[in-house]
Structure formats: C-alpha cells, structure tokens
Amino acid sequence: MSRNVGIASRLKRNKITEVVASGKRMDGRDLLDYREIQIKTGVLEKVEGSAEAYLGKTRVLVGVKFGKGYPFDDTPDKGVLMTNAEFTPIAHPTFEPGPPDERSIELARVVDRGLRSAEILDMKKLCLVPGKSVYMVHVDIYVLSYDGNLIDCSALAAIAALKTAKMPVYTVKDENVKLTKKTKAVKILREPLAVSIVKIGDSLLVDPSADEEEVMDARITITLDEKGNVCTIQKVGSVGFTRDELKTAVQIAAEKVEELRKNV
C-alpha cells in the first residue's frame, strides 16, 4: 500500500522488525498465531445470507443477495456471482468516503477469485432460462473495522454467509420466470479460505495487524479449499519472495487453513 512512510512509521517499523526478528510480536502473539476469530451468521434479516466475522479488532460484515438478471454473453447458461467490497469511513481514520481505491478493489477481487476459481457454486444450476434469465448472486463485503488482514476475515465471512444462505426458488414455465415464496439451502461445492502471510525482514507471519501491514515488506495471500488444493494466490508489496520462502508460505497456509476451517 502506497502510504507515505513518515518518521513515525519508520520508528514503528524498526521496533516491529526488531520484535518480529526475535520471534515475537507486538501484541504478544507467536508469528504463526491468528487472533481470536469469531463468526456470527444470520445477522441481517433482509438478505438471503449474512455473516459477521471478527479477527481481533478487524470486523467485516458480508451480505449475500440473490436476485435474477441477465447472464453474461459468453456464459449464457450460467448464473452470475459478483463480489464487491466497500471500505466504510467508520472502519479506520485512513479510510475516506469516495470511489473504491486500489485496496478495496484488491480485497473484492482476491475474495472473488477465491470463490470463483474454487467453483463454490454450480453456476449451471443457477441458470433459469438460458441466455435470458439467471440467478444473480451478490456478495457484498462491508468493512466495519480495520485492524489488518481484511482478506482472510472477508473470505471467512463470505463462506459463512453463503453456507447459511437460503436462496429464493423460481418457477419457470414457457420462459416465464416467477418468484415463489419458497426458499432452499445453497449448495456449496467447495470451501476456499484465505491465509495471508506477511514478510517482515526475514520472518514470515500470519494474520497481520494494521501496524504490521503498514510496515510489512510484502504479503502473499494463499486460498486453499478443503482438500488442500491451492485456488488463488496474490502477492503484493515492494519486496520479492525467494523460492524457499514461497514453499514455506504454502506449507504454513495449508496448516493454518485447517485451523480457520473450524470456525465456519
């Protein structure tokens, strides 16, 4: 993130790097410890699915809305899954109202790619009339409080919300699509969850806080499904990773994702 690195954060950086190099962290965690995870589902009434995830002081609300709409031209027989992320100005002093910036676009796209490339929904089953009418699934990520690691937190909330969602049932007669009062559970084929690992100095650590994200050298986010397959990777930050560090990162992610999975 291209924030100005001022004097204060350079001091912060030195301190955090020093502590991390000794194998500890400012908040007392070990390098590979997540903060306390809490997930509540069904927190909203007007949506088909919702979940709120807490990762320490990071708090994300996800609402899942089902509707009907037109398919994309290149996939006329598939439903549409869209993920959007919004940073609310109440979440952190550095968040300002306005059009989505790089960070919220990245958050939405990384979570979106996690859901999409893992093919969590059978998109063909979400088609009502080929070429004319399909289910639209909107996953809206709403960041309510920011203390680092938004991607992992959002992926948890998104999966929890989709798993508990009840989708509306439509009847199709001669291409006429009618909404019924019935609902059914959403069938989830895979459960991709994200593990973000940041590099500070020569150390790799999971679940970065806002301070750690501010001073980190680089970050890699790895999304894995329940079988341990890798679904999405995203590397950001102004430093590279060596081949060995990447191998270690995938191992850490594969281990940590099991821990996260217990929460959804």
Binding site: S117, A118, N229, R243
Partner: peptide, 25 residues
C-alpha cells in the same frame, strides 16, 4: 529477478494441488 532470485509477482487462479503449484513456480 534472476540475479537476486526473488519472485516479485505471484498470482494464481484456478485449482492446483500443492505439488502442481510448486511445479508451476
């Protein structure tokens, strides 16, 4: 960067086992 042996961009889409992923790298 061949000289420093650092990977500076890494993204992925799709489904790969961990072995295949390492093979791709």
């Amino acid at each position: 960067m061949p000289k420093t042996e650092h990977v500076t961009l890494l993204q992925m889409d799709g489904i790969l086992s961990q072995d295949d992923f390492n093979g791709c790298i």
